[in-house]
Nucleic acid binder design. Structure first.
Lengths: 211, 211, 211, 211
DNA sequence: AATGAATGAGGATTCATTCAT
DNA sequence: GATGAATGAATCCTCATTCAT
């Protein structure tokens, strides 16, 4: 931040230094993500964060104005909206059952890859307003993903006209909670089979044919 | 303990004091529930808790060994397992659609009545091991509720044989997350309509008849 | 303390009750002695004292104005000055070596019997001014005991004229510290042999005869 | 740690800060010694300690993990074992009476210089296990000091063969208690004269020559 | 950029003591 | 006499944050 360079070689040097600074910053953020996820925001002290990153506590305040702002940075950096958006952009001419199963499992897998972040989303809602905001974005994005596809299939005549919002949220919510509980709970049905069967149920119904 | 009474009113006296103590205890627990739900466990100081209850902070430790133990007491006292168990014990000869809709909405309403507790379940998982344990109990109870009924209807031939665990959890999870998000989010579909439609979807499927 | 008797039978009753009250008081004192000795005055709470005596904490304040006053009562009640004074009143025509050995061992034994109290004397000097005061009394009494005897034997010509204060204190101090350290330390010489030899040394000297 | 210095004065800088930290630490320890000695460990709050040292209370915990550990540091730093060991290493060809008198008085003087520490040794035995441990070391060192010398003089024929442990402990214990009581009590005999006479008594005995 | 000394507010908890019953 | 509920001050300790180096 403080630029008091004298000789002309400074610009390049500054860039190098900036790069290093950015690296350091992301290192601090990534370390914080893990520690926050494991111990919780409030139960983690800045000293611990610094120790985990192998730096002095004072350095934390060079890169982040406050502990809160660090949480902000963590959540912003790891919000996997891009990955979410990238999902389901292909596969248009496949049957809905197949597409929804694949997408559902992708969604489930994505949440699993971001387990630490999910932990923060679930537990630190009250620590910083940015947390629920971003979590809401992600959830809505997930729901929208399904809904957009469903609307398309309704339009294509593959699905009957109905409130796709309900179906989309049924899918998204169930997958999210399946993910959230799959760590702590012991489930009878394995996630992939679960998701596949849920999709089938939603498409074809569980009522007996006669009824 | 010491009984040197002559008239029959004496025993009641001791009881009166005890009663008051019990009342006071529940008052402290109930106050704590609200404050924990609003501010979060870590962000709430014992001083605040005492102030909210209108007592000296020292008194908190007369009734509870620690702040942790208070949380324990809160969660134990308000775990609505009895209410959950009471649900769906009637209405056997009604169509599944109707029964599931009613039960689903009851479940949703019950979660709503326990909003403060739900807040704790969602956010304070890491504060005390009893929180996830009881939350798991409740969730499993809710799931079991649906599953038992579904199994029964499968046996009765109203539903086709399928993994009822999946359907039950789809219902329960969606309702739970519907509840959890209905405060912070703004939904297009109203909860009751949502639940009703979800039940219909699950029973009859959303696929176009031709498919 | 509060006397509001109406009928003439009260005096006798009061006496019975007083007796019981005195008993209770000494019970509380004796319990306190043990707990204070074991845990130290500051580290012992009134609640613990009450629990150890099997009564409610409030009752402590019926019998003692404060925790300090309880310590006072403890020290006063158990100050073994009478026993000390009773020592060495006999045995006038025996050789000094024998008498001093017996008395020294008696003194040592007496301190041993009062181990709890000794603990308080050693550690709680700063807790209440009465503690060092009484301890000084006891110590001086012990010293005086020896000195009186020594003076008498000097007068009788059995001992040579010298500063008996020095000899008396050498004896008393050594025995006291022997006692104080005998619990925590591991000594080579056993107390009785030690005291006997010390007396011999003091009487006859350890210098070689030639010198 | 980070060395990006050009001129040779840089390394010293880091050392300067470290030096200051060490100084600060000893300052805190020394202040604590005085306050603990005056008020007692339990009766002294960390706030007082900090105030006495003119620092914020939080700083105490930067240097010491706990109040207990501070006491540990105090006792360790001021345990005058080195000084004790240095005593009596000379003067081999002087008469025992002279040597013992000088050493006894030195020992007494040393204890006097460490009055604050002695206070802690006497009163805070129960506050932390390190206190009695170090005190035992010191006492044993003092005893050993005398005993080694006595053994040597016995071997040299100046003293008659006897249990030197008894004589050594008589000397050491008496001097220690003389020191401990000389503050609170009012003695007739002055310490130096007392010690000299005690040595004489121990060497030559107080029994009348005829006996 | 990096360190860690220094601060002071605030947190959980303990405790002597009082008081209504 | 006896109980234990109630008080509030005080205690140890933690922590986010600042700052000189």
């Amino acid at each position: 931040m403080t630029e008091h360079s004298i000789n002309p070689s400074a610009p390049k040097r500054a860039t190098q230094r900036d790069e290093k600074a950015v690296e350091r910053r992301t290192q601090l953020i990534d370390t914080a993500l893990e520690v926050f996820a494991k111990k919780g925001f409030d139960k983690t002290s800045v000293r611990e964060l610094a120790a985990a990153a192998g730096v002095a506590q004072g350095l934390m305040y060079h890169y982040f104005k406050s502990k809160d702002q660090l949480l902000e940075a963590v959540v912003e950096r790891h919000s996997f909206l891009p990955q979410l958006k990238a999902m389901l952009t292909t596969m248009h001419n496949e049957p809905a059952a197949k597409v929804l199963k694949i997408t559902g499992n992708q969604f489930f897998a994505l949440l699993g890859q971001k387990e630490s972040l999910m932990n923060i989303f679930f537990h630190e809602t009250q620590s910083h307003p940015i947390v629920p905001r971003i979590w809401r974005n992600i959830l809505n994005q997930g729901i929208g993903l399904f809904q957009t596809y469903l609307d398309e299939r309704v339009a294509a005549g593959e699905l009957k006209p109905h409130t796709t919002d309900v179906t989309a949220r049924t899918l998204a919510y169930t997958i999210v909670l399946l993910r959230a509980t799959s760590v702590a709970f012991h489930h009878r049905t394995r996630p992939e089979a679960f998701i596949n069967e849920m999709v089938d149920n939603l498409l074809s119904g569980v009522a007996a044919p006669a009824a």
